[in-house]
Design a protein around this nucleic acid. Structure first.
Lengths: 333, 333
DNA sequence: GCGAAGGGTTTTAACGTTCAAAAGGCCTGG
DNA sequence: CCAGGCCTTTTGAACGTTAAAACCCTTCGC
């Protein structure tokens, strides 16, 4: 069956084309009986507005671009959660997500420009934000709408709107939870200093420990990369120290699982002998045994804020809070 | 800067609008000097064709729909790889991927229909195919173009085109690799019988063992779910049997990692004492220690076939072969 | 020298929708 | 009975592009 057009619906309902258009976009303008008649015809002919014609006329495509990241060495285990949430949020406003690939950083900007100039998308959601991300200024200068998932760190004035999750608050939650389950020496597994994300989460651990009067000296370990082996190595290092910790807050689920593995290897029981927490609530946290206590990013909230910020063109900043998902790895000690 | 239109380029190059259009879509029709003049104007005015106008006229949007899956209990660790490959393949033909959400199974079909009827997409890539997937027949009846990632199992005549990876061939590769590294009792960690995927991979293990004269009796274990704990439990069960295996082919990387964990717990060294392989080459395989030997899905090839099959509307079937990625977990025993 | 053929370019007419403005209908009040 | 105003509906044009036909000019064959 070929799709019906406005014209055909109009002919069937014996009104003008514009009236049918109004029935869809401004029903209050129609007399109730006309509206009913038109709607009946719409229903009967199974009419669906042609999005291309609409976009051509209104010059708004209701499509949001998202560059699908390809990390050579970093794993992104929660990308499916993020995309699902982003899609759902977009659909709640009648929009959709258009995926594309582009070189990382500022080299990719011509691709963004092209997509926007050719009217494939109205704007962009950026992720994988880096310190002083050059993409922000570029897009702003070209007047291309965008919103960033992730703060542009260390900048007092942001060139654009952003949404982010408070990593420090996340660490604070983890530390307090470990404290409440009886731990008093809480270590932190981190990454190299180059990552703004890592510093944020590390700061939260440090300040919360200070507030609770807990020691931090010698309890922060930097892992070289995000692997099980590095998490295990760092944990081994901590456990072999004169004063081993009784709790570990890890910067990622992967490091945390590495920690769990090291505990198991030493015949220590995670949760009982030592509390361990991860970050991001990746699928791994659930399939691990014991389940990994971790900090869940509020994906739906993030996505909703991203979409509304982008579509209302507001220059807002949203700092959201992660929530603690408690599983076996922090069973009361 | 407001984007230029064909009209403006035409005025600038002192030709008609259609000539500019031809310069882009059928340059051979123009006299070389005209073409050069038009191209110069295009360049100068930074002209980009408006996709909406084009689509309206040609009724082809060059967008492919993909329903972003949300598995309640199954993890999909290679989705980012898949999406990246799919995007890249689409872009190679000037197309893009449009993401959307829909209820699983046949309940979601009205969403597909709507997207197609409103001309947001030309067709769909389906994934998460199930046994006798009802979506295929539904789409075929509505004449909505689609291609499926995953066979509709056990059907002799498929209602549509598909691309899939030969799981049996994958298992065969794993078994032979373990055989060549000296293992002679090779077990298989599987899932419940309900999964066509699992049966395919299991069959490959069984037949290859038969070919090599290896035993299979008592060496296939079904895991209840895809978790580390189940993988570990099954492995423990195997190791405790009177004749323990010296190799394990697991249906998934997660089960394989569960197996590795159980080995470590028993102070066995994966790779030296027992060879273990996984499936799918998820990021975990690389971050595990030792690295997990696993079967990589040829994502780029899959994506390329999906896109070309969909866009050429051919009724083709492509069965692709996984490749073995050897890491430490099968170091020669 | 004239019709045919053909390459190159322009003209005309859509594609399906919405915007702006005009037209029509109906009621109210004088 | 008509002017004025409000509410509903129609008309005309436009969004930017491409397909098809028409047109012009040159070249070719006889």
């Amino acid at each position: 069956m070929v799709v019906a057009t406005l014209k055909q619906v109009a002919a069937h309902a014996e009104v003008s084309v514009q009236t049918v258009s109004n029935a869809l976009n401004a029903p209050h303008r129609l007399r109730p009986d006309t509206l009913a008649r038109v709607n009946a015809s719409i229903e009967l002919l199974n009419y669906r507005p042609n999005r291309n014609a609409r976009s051509l006329r209104t010059s708004a495509v209701e499509l949001i671009g998202y560059c699908v990241p390809s990390w050579p060495n970093q794993t992104h285990l929660v990308m499916d959660q993020f995309l699902h949430a982003l899609c759902a949020a977009a659909e709640r406003t009648g929009r959709h997500i258009l995926l594309f690939t582009a070189p990382p950083g500022v080299e990719g900007m011509p691709v963004y420009d092209d997509l926007h100039a050719r009217r494939l998308v109205d704007g962009f959601v950026l992720s994988q934000t880096e310190t002083r991300d050059p993409r922000h200024g570029w897009l702003k200068e070209k007047k291309i709408p965008f919103v960033s998932f992730g703060r542009v760190w260390k900048e007092s004035t942001q060139p654009g709107a952003w949404v982010d999750v408070d990593g420090a608050a996340g660490s604070a939650l983890a530390v307090r939870h470990l404290y409440e389950t009886g731990r008093r020496r809480i270590a932190f597994l981190s990454w190299p200093k180059t990552s703004g994300l890592a510093e944020d989460r590390l700061d939260g651990w440090r300040s919360t420990c200070a507030e609770l009067g807990l020691p931090t000296a010698g309890l922060a370990v930097r892992c070289r990369e995000d692997t099980f082996a590095e998490g295990a190595r760092a944990t081994a290092h901590l456990l072999d120290s004169p004063e081993p910790p009784d709790g570990i807050v890890a910067l990622s689920d992967i490091l945390a699982l590495g920690a769990l593995r090291e505990l198991t290897r030493r015949n220590l029981t995670p949760g009982r002998d030592l509390g361990v927490t991860g970050f991001d609530d990746s699928p791994l946290a659930d399939v691990a045994a014991p389940g990994l206590t971790t900090l869940r990013q509020p994906m739906d909230e993030i996505a909703t804020h991203l979409i509304t910020t982008l579509t209302t063109q507001s220059h807002a900043a949203h700092l959201l809070h992660p929530t603690l998902v408690v599983r076996g790895s922090t069973a009361p000690g």
